[in-house]
């Protein structure tokens, strides 16, 4: 299989064309929005917790982006459902990348982990879970 065929393998295109967890959750217990400054792509993540207030019961997303960012965020929703906020806050990006399972250049890596970063920001805001430095840029919102 060529590198190209690997990157756009069937499972990626399937998640891109039929994204899981697509759509806003209203009401949501946690939400955040983030952009990829490289291309202007945006993703908004919505989270609902279960009765314990910790376990992620449902997660949805809205936004626009490339096949890699959309498929990765779709896979992310499946990966985190049923986990607690603190588990997801400390979830290494490698776990998601393993799930995606394709070779990524540094630039496309940013596409792949945008949704995960935004989810971490949402949890940080709603639950005060730690936000490691590598994700803090997404939470900054300095405007003129």
């Amino acid at each position: 299989m060529s590198e190209l065929e690997q990157m756009y393998r069937e499972v990626i295109l399937d998640h891109y064309k039929n994204p899981r967890g697509h759509g806003a959750l209203d009401p949501a217990d946690a939400t955040a929005e983030g952009q990829n400054p490289l291309c202007g792509d945006e993703v908004t993540i919505f989270v609902r917790f279960g009765e314990d207030g910790e376990t992620i019961d449902d997660v949805g997303f809205e936004g626009r982006g490339c096949a890699i960012s959309q498929a990765a965020t779709s896979m992310l929703t499946e990966l985190v459902k049923g986990r607690t906020a603190s588990e997801v806050a400390s979830l290494p990006k490698e776990d998601l990348l393993e799930e995606i399972g394709i070779p990524l250049t540094p630039i496309r890596l940013k596409c792949a982990i945008l949704g995960l970063g935004v989810l971490k920001v949402a949890l940080h805001r709603a639950k005060g879970t730690p936000l490691p430095p590598e994700w803090q840029g997404l939470a900054d919102d300095l405007t003129i």
Partner: peptide, 10 residues
Amino acid sequence: NVHPHDVAQI
């Protein structure tokens, strides 16, 4: 139906 990033990548 194809994002510009994917166009440029291919």
